[in-house]
Computed example of a mutant assay.
Amino acid sequence: MRRLERVAALILPPLWSNRVLPALDLPLRGRTAANVAFATGYTKLFRGNPNWLSPSGFRWGLSSAAVVLTGYAVALAIPSLRRLPLEIAVRAPETSTLEWIALHIPVGTVLAEEAIFRGTLDPVLADSVGAPVIGAIDFGLWHIQPARAAGDPVLPTILATTLAGLVFTELRRRSGSATAPALLHLAINAGGALAPTAARWVDGLGR
């Protein structure tokens, strides 16, 4: 029974992200709500425990997020590095950048994904051989359809998000909470979404 539970826990997230959710053909707000609903049901079904209010989770998460945000700040301060985000289009589909940053990234992406993968799947796989790698690969596979929808190359996206999944899983292991990877995840995604706008603003100040 435990093996069947693990198989189901592995199959359901990529199936939802790549098949079921796209088939629903929802607008952005609908997709955010659907992802949260799926994450809630998945967490309850597999008895997840994100441990969101863990002080250790906040400490590890804020420290990790600070490193990422510092990296973004350094990139914006150096003209040769600032050109990279200047060449990236601002991605805020179907909504304003503010709503994208304030709602859809933290709730529809970060909260939902961390509840599913670090808060639930990681504990389900805890006793499995190669559990961190298996969970990280599943996280990578979750991003196949989102990469296609965004026009991003699929294989590099899978590899990048698998690597990120390994880092997030390690943060959860060290902190005992999904809050730590959630805060790092938020810093990466929100910082990346804001970087093109911030780069244009900084570039304008120098003229």
Results as ranks from 00 to 15, higher is better:
residue 184 L to A: 08
residue 167 V to G: 11
residue 97 T to A: 12
residue 74 V to N: 03
residue 16 W to E: 09
residue 187 A to C: 09
residue 21 L to P: 06
residue 49 N to H: 03
residue 82 R to K: 06
residue 145 Q to L: 12
residue 128 S to M: 08
residue 196 P to N: 11
residue 166 L to T: 11
residue 67 V to N: 02
residue 132 P to H: 00
residue 21 L to M: 12
residue 36 V to D: 08
residue 87 E to C: 03
residue 50 P to T: 01
residue 135 G to V: 05
residue 162 T to F: 00
residue 15 L to V: 15
residue 180 A to P: 00
residue 204 G to E: 15
residue 114 E to H: 02
residue 174 R to I: 09
residue 85 P to E: 08
residue 176 G to N: 04
residue 157 T to G: 12
residue 190 A to D: 03
residue 2 R to T: 15
residue 84 L to Q: 14
residue 154 V to H: 08
residue 190 A to S: 14
residue 23 A to C: 12
residue 47 R to T: 06
residue 6 R to S: 10
residue 2 R to Y: 10
residue 173 R to V: 10
residue 28 L to P: 00
residue 71 G to P: 10
residue 130 G to H: 02
residue 193 A to C: 04
residue 147 A to L: 06
residue 207 R to G: 11
residue 139 F to W: 07
residue 35 N to L: 12
residue 120 T to F: 08
residue 4 L to E: 12
residue 33 A to S: 08
residue 146 P to Y: 12
residue 146 P to K: 10
residue 121 L to M: 03
residue 136 A to V: 07
residue 46 F to C: 02
residue 180 A to L: 01
residue 60 W to I: 08
residue 31 R to E: 15
residue 88 I to L: 15
residue 35 N to R: 13
residue 103 L to C: 04
residue 122 D to R: 01
residue 142 W to C: 10
residue 82 R to T: 05
residue 202 V to K: 13
residue 70 T to G: 15
residue 44 K to Y: 06
residue 65 A to H: 00
residue 198 A to R: 14
residue 30 G to S: 03
residue 138 D to N: 09
residue 101 I to W: 10
residue 45 L to R: 04
residue 176 G to D: 02
residue 177 S to A: 04
residue 106 P to C: 04
residue 123 P to L: 10
residue 66 A to L: 14
residue 104 H to T: 11
residue 176 G to I: 03
residue 24 L to A: 10
residue 206 G to Q: 15
residue 51 N to D: 08
residue 89 A to S: 11
residue 52 W to D: 07
residue 29 R to L: 11
residue 186 L to F: 13
residue 207 R to I: 15
residue 202 V to Q: 11
residue 49 N to P: 00
residue 17 S to M: 15
residue 189 N to Q: 07
residue 2 R to N: 14
residue 46 F to T: 01
residue 144 I to K: 14
residue 95 T to N: 08
residue 74 V to F: 11
residue 85 P to M: 06
residue 68 V to G: 00
residue 85 P to R: 02
residue 152 D to V: 08
residue 42 Y to Q: 03
residue 165 G to M: 07
residue 15 L to D: 13
residue 45 L to S: 01
residue 54 S to W: 03
residue 36 V to L: 15
residue 62 L to N: 01
residue 164 A to W: 11
residue 87 E to I: 00
residue 142 W to P: 08
residue 194 L to G: 05
residue 175 S to E: 01
residue 136 A to I: 00
residue 139 F to P: 05
residue 121 L to P: 02
residue 85 P to V: 00
residue 25 D to G: 14
residue 101 I to A: 15
residue 38 F to L: 13
residue 189 N to R: 07
residue 183 L to Y: 01
residue 160 A to Q: 10
residue 118 R to Q: 10
residue 95 T to I: 05
residue 148 R to S: 14
residue 102 A to K: 05
residue 185 H to G: 04
residue 82 R to C: 05
residue 61 G to I: 04
residue 188 I to C: 03
residue 184 L to G: 02
residue 87 E to R: 13
residue 70 T to Y: 04
residue 158 I to D: 13
residue 163 L to P: 01
residue 68 V to H: 01
residue 98 L to P: 11
residue 166 L to V: 05
residue 150 A to N: 09
residue 75 A to R: 04
residue 109 T to A: 13
